[in-house]
Design a binder for these strands. Structure first.
Lengths: 156, 156
DNA sequence: CTAAACAGAACTGAATCAGTCCCCATTGTT
DNA sequence: AACAATGGGGACTGATTCAGTTCTGTTTAG
């Protein structure tokens, strides 16, 4: 289905809640509080926050009265960042990775083209910030269309 | 990893070979021939072609001297079409589907925003045709990265 | 009638996902 | 100094999905 994992989904939700609570970088929110607010199981939220912290998207305070805060303003965190943090580098196929080599290297007709797709998707995910995701309603509801016919004309 | 399945990957490869063999809509290629050319296991290629046929991307001739041909010109088949055919509708999250409803409908802060992401990705995949994928080398190596194709305009 | 091809479904081992649990380190409070 | 609440880092497990094979039809040229 070309889908992201639930964990990534949750990560976005949790981060969105984090945006709404502690605005810039002052107070921290505990994992438990975020779990309650987002109505997700506490251990899972905890796990996600750990991964986000390791990836540098959130900062953590340990000890009593500890918690998490965003490491950067919400406008500077993209969905691509979150996906990468939770799922690893964005690579639509095996071939899309840097040091790859499948058995077909050399005679595979699509070899170099997956990169294009990968970049297109990465670009799409990079263009959407956490701040946008946190807005309760999309400003105007997109008319992205289904227009596969954009590029590619002079050929047959 | 936000990745497509191997089957989809194979589907693109097989279709690319199909583009290169029978040009417009004349001769058919057998599943076995395509498997040989693409160096993929024959039963798997067969399975993929069946699914592509069911989705209407290729046409099949049955009986002896049967085979497959593209149902449309390669310029009119997008990568999004192939992904949809093999993996089902493109839905990055459960929430991205039409008649959805997760437990959080109503108080989920990102509820309406996944749609935006989904459309951005769909747009990216729709903008790349099978014809492009079949070209041995990408003409100019893309600077697609900062240009997410379609969606996402009015933002921060 | 037969051989070669597609059609459709069922089946299975392997991999990944989702979620939990446990034990350790840190730190404010008592 | 002891305690309790918090994050940190794994390990573990059931469920799901993937990838690939196999089997049994159906069609059709020779």
């Amino acid at each position: 289905m070309l889908r992201i994992t639930k964990l990534t989904d949750y990560a976005i939700v949790v981060l969105a809640h984090l945006v709404q609570t502690g605005s810039p970088a002052v107070g921290v929110s505990t994992a438990r509080a975020l779990a309650t607010r987002s109505q997700l199981p506490a251990p899972t939220v905890s796990k996600i926050l750990k991964e986000l912290a390791r990836a540098g998207l959130v900062q953590s305070e340990r000890g009593l009265s500890g918690g998490y805060r965003l490491a950067r303003p919400a406008t500077e965190i993209s969905v691509a960042d979150v996906v990468s943090a939770v799922e690893g580098p964005i690579a639509v196929t095996e071939c899309s990775r840097e040091g790859d080599s499948c058995d077909h290297t050399g005679h595979c007709p699509v070899e170099s083209n997956w990169l294009k797709i990968n970049q297109a998707i990465y670009g799409a995910l990079s263009s959407i910030t956490l701040e946008e995701m946190s807005r309760p309603l999309a400003p105007r509801l997109i008319q992205l269309t289904s227009k596969p016919t954009t590029a590619t004309s002079a050929l047959s």
